[in-house]
Each structure stands twice: as structure tokens, then as C-alpha cells.
């Protein structure tokens, strides 16, 4: 017994302060919100698109990256002859709408809170049922990690539950394989109304690296009504936590700029308001 207590003492207190205090600092090489300086792009240059494994580059309104497809592999950064693409250390990348994930990084809107009614329903207690529909176990692992003492999801009244009957919503990972579609739909149907859907990872949003395969459906779109999109391959646990908390209105969106210690990886000011225009810092 004494050895158990001694070990408990030695292991210490490990829960992070987030969302209180300063933003956690992720490793220098962490690849978060992408930032594109379209002004640098020679016309008709498609070097980035040619190497992108998931066709995440968009050229319709300037040059933008679809984070719903992006695997954050940085192949585009290496291929770009002008150094126009960078991945910042900004981890707060979740979005309410699918369209908001298509960004050049300059004025990325942080996930905004749900309406007052949903907030009243879910804001203080959110029980989620997780369904992996073709997920590779990376997204699943980094959802699981939220239950460890480091993130301690329970302190926010959020819990992953075993039965859909006990759940307020569903967290989906994976590209929704053909063989898992029915089980996903049945699980969703078993959750009592009102309910929400959170899509975690490039696969659940767009099919990820499996997009276009006959064996899957290219994510939740068209199958379930997604309320919150959390991009990444996989998203960092902080991205998932921040996205859910912000969406529940548990973090008041302050619009504070990202503090980036590495100027080479700096990007624009984040905005909570899509109308706010900020001047991105160009390295």
C-alpha cells in the first residue's frame, strides 16, 4: 500500500490547465492551420496540387487549402517553388461548417458556439457515442486520450458513453466504409433527439486518403448532418478538445492572435468573426 502511495506521489499532477491560462505550446514541427500566400503564386502554377495526395488545393478564390481533405503531410510546402505555403502551429482548426475548412489561413474563423437552445441542452453535459467507420485507430486513439488525466474530459461534463441510448450525439471517425454504413446509421438512429454529430479527422470529413475508393462513402457528408468538423490526420487531442469546447460555448472566443514563437511558421491573426479582416504576416 505504501508503495502505491509513493508511486502516486511520484507520478504527480498532470492535468493541463487548458482552456485556462496561456495557449499550450506545441512542438516546433507541429503542422497546424495552413497559411497560403497566393500573391506569390505564379499564374497557372500547380506544383502543390500535383503532389497533394488528397487534392486539397483549391484555386477558385485565390489559392486555398481544404483542411477537410488535407492530411497535413506538407508535400505541398516542399513542392512549392515560391515558399507560398506554410503550416503554422495554430491547433484551433475546428469549424462549424464544411466550407469554413477551405482557407488560406488569413482569417480562419474559430468554431463558433451553438445556438442558445442547443447550448442549454448540451453546454453543461454532453454524452457522446463514438463510432469508428473505417478509422485507422489514430483518430480513435486521440479521442480516447481525452479521457486520460492529461486532458480530463470529465471536468467539462463531457463523456464518451457505451450506449447510443445514453448519448446526446455521435463522434464519427473513418471514411464511412460500405460495410460500416448500416451500423453507423443504426447507431445514429438509436440516439434520442435532439442530437449532434461531430466528424473527427480527414476521413470522416472527406474520405481522407481513401476518397474515391468504392469501398467507402467519402466521409459523413450526405449520410449524417455534421455539426462540427475537426480536421487533421489525426487531429491533435487539443484540436478536438478546443473544437468541442468552443462549439459548446465553453470557451468564449476571444479572437486573440496566435502566439507563434517561430516566425517562419507565423500566420495571420485568427478571427472569430468571418467579417474581420486581418493582415497576415508573411514570412
Amino acid at each position: 500500500m505504501l508503495s502505491v502511495i509513493r508511486e502516486r506521489w511520484r507520478q504527480g499532477h498532470r492535468t493541463i490547465a487548458y482552456p485556462a491560462g496561456d495557449l499550450p505550446v506545441l512542438p516546433d514541427r507541429y503542422r497546424g492551420l495552413p497559411c497560403v500566400d497566393g500573391a506569390k503564386c505564379p499564374s497557372e502554377c500547380r506544383a502543390c496540387a500535383d503532389v497533394c495526395p488528397t487534392d486539397a488545393l483549391r484555386f477558385d478564390a485565390g489559392v486555398r487549402i481544404d483542411m477537410g481533405r488535407c492530411l497535413f503531410c506538407t508535400d505541398c510546402t516542399s513542392a512549392c517553388p515560391e515558399g507560398a505555403i506554410a503550416f503554422t502551429r495554430e491547433f484551433r482548426t475546428a469549424a462549424r461548417t464544411r466550407d469554413a475548412l477551405v482557407t488560406d489561413g488569413a482569417a480562419f474563423p474559430l468554431a463558433r458556439a451553438v445556438d442558445a437552445k442547443s447550448r442549454r441542452l448540451f453546454g453543461r453535459s454532453l454524452q457522446l457515442r463514438q463510432v469508428s467507420a473505417g478509422g485507422c485507430n489514430a483518430c480513435e486513439a486521440d479521442i480516447n486520450v481525452l479521457a486520460t488525466p492529461v486532458f480530463d474530459l470529465g471536468r467539462f461534463g463531457i463523456k464518451v458513453v457505451a450506449s447510443p441510448r445514453h448519448a446526446d450525439g455521435i463522434i464519427v471517425t473513418g471514411p464511412v466504409t460500405a460495410n460500416m454504413r448500416l451500423a453507423l446509421e443504426k447507431t445514429y438512429a438509436a440516439i434520442p433527439d435532439p442530437k449532434c454529430v461531430i466528424a473527427v479527422g480527414a476521413c470522416a470529413i472527406s474520405g481522407g486518403p481513401f476518397a474515391g475508393h468504392d469501398e467507402q462513402h467519402g466521409g459523413c457528408e450526405g449520410i449524417l448532418p455534421v455539426d462540427l468538423h475537426i480536421p487533421g490526420c489525426p487531429p491533435h487531442p487539443l484540436t478536438i478538445l478546443d473544437g468541442i469546447l468552443r462549439w459548446l460555448g465553453r470557451i468564449e472566443s476571444s479572437g486573440a492572435p496566435t502566439i507563434d514563437r517561430d516566425s517562419n511558421h507565423s500566420c495571420g491573426t485568427l478571427s472569430t468573426d468571418t467579417h474581420a479582416i486581418s493582415t497576415p504576416y508573411r514570412p
Partner: peptide
């Protein structure tokens, strides 16, 4: 079978720009 994503079939004709992400997943 629930997780079947058809990876082996997609690898044929490669290696290409998607091969490595498929290996990693």
C-alpha cells in the same frame, strides 16, 4: 470486414502520391 477500405487494390499501378498516406493509415 467492417473496416475494409480497399487499400491493396488502390496500390496497384503505384507508387504514386497517395501511396505513402495509404501505408501510414
Amino acid at each position: 470486414g467492417y473496416q475494409h477500405r480497399g487499400i491493396e487494390r488502390r496500390l496497384i499501378g503505384g507508387p504514386d502520391k497517395r501511396t505513402l498516406p495509404l501505408m501510414e493509415t
